[in-house]
Amino acid sequence: MSILIKDLKYTYMPKTPFEKTAIHDISLEIQKGEFVAVIGHTGSGKSTLLQHLNGLLLPTEGEVFIDGEKITKKNLSEIRRKVGFVFQYPEHQLFEDTVYKDIAFALKRFKLSDEEIDAKVRKAANTVGLDEALFESSVFDLSGGEKRRVAICGVLVSDPSYLLLDEPASGLDGKGRRDMLALLKKLNSEGVTIVLISHSMDDVAEVADRIILINEGTVALDGTPGEVFSKEELLASMSLDVPEVTKLFNDFSKRSGIPLPTVTTALQGREIIRMLINEGRLVL
């Protein structure tokens, strides 16, 4: 059970003067249950890659398999039920007059009874922590964080095993951002595979188990946050940052001469400090 990508290549507007190869030579596998972050600067091709995972784009060359089944024009409906995609701006998908109807939209095409639909909508709302009192409100009156929840809910109703998200936390305030990351963590612990795109290295370090770095249309690095963020200079050459905390401890390590592992989150940073205190190297 996995997402398997083989020798993927995609060219925009082939055979025209505007022809541009967005991604090439990508082969990788994402196992069920992983929490993957795809990073790369704007225009690196990460969004093009993500759109191949549920058939929004079909490869110019190469193949993509979902649980062993190759994505083709013919099985899109089934693939999209299995692989949900939440876009960056919920405004791009919310359209029904009430929250409830909007969440239920994806279920329309399956011949389900009203009770079955109702059960699925309530279950999804419960998962994302959306207050049922909002069901009858207009989608356009919601706050930014609520809109995003409804958008995710509208994808979760189809019970996808894989969830793709483009910048799920951007534009949210502090609490909204933390709640969103916690929600994704929770979904992942319930067995949903998460693949997200993010520009925030701090967020990525906090939630992802694996980071795939895309540069100039192909995979440049693939590993744990610790592995990827240990290459500060390489990332800088691709105009990417490492988390602020990583820089802090790198600088400290350099100046103090104490060798330290790559620190990617505040939590790890606190552990390092505790360790240094216990070893008697730091005295408060």
Partner: peptide, 13 residues
């Protein structure tokens, strides 16, 4: 207010 701390500040809470 549910505000975020800057990343470096979170280490030194």
């Amino acid at each position: 207010l549910g505000l975020d701390l800057p990343p470096a500040a979170r280490v030194f809470e």
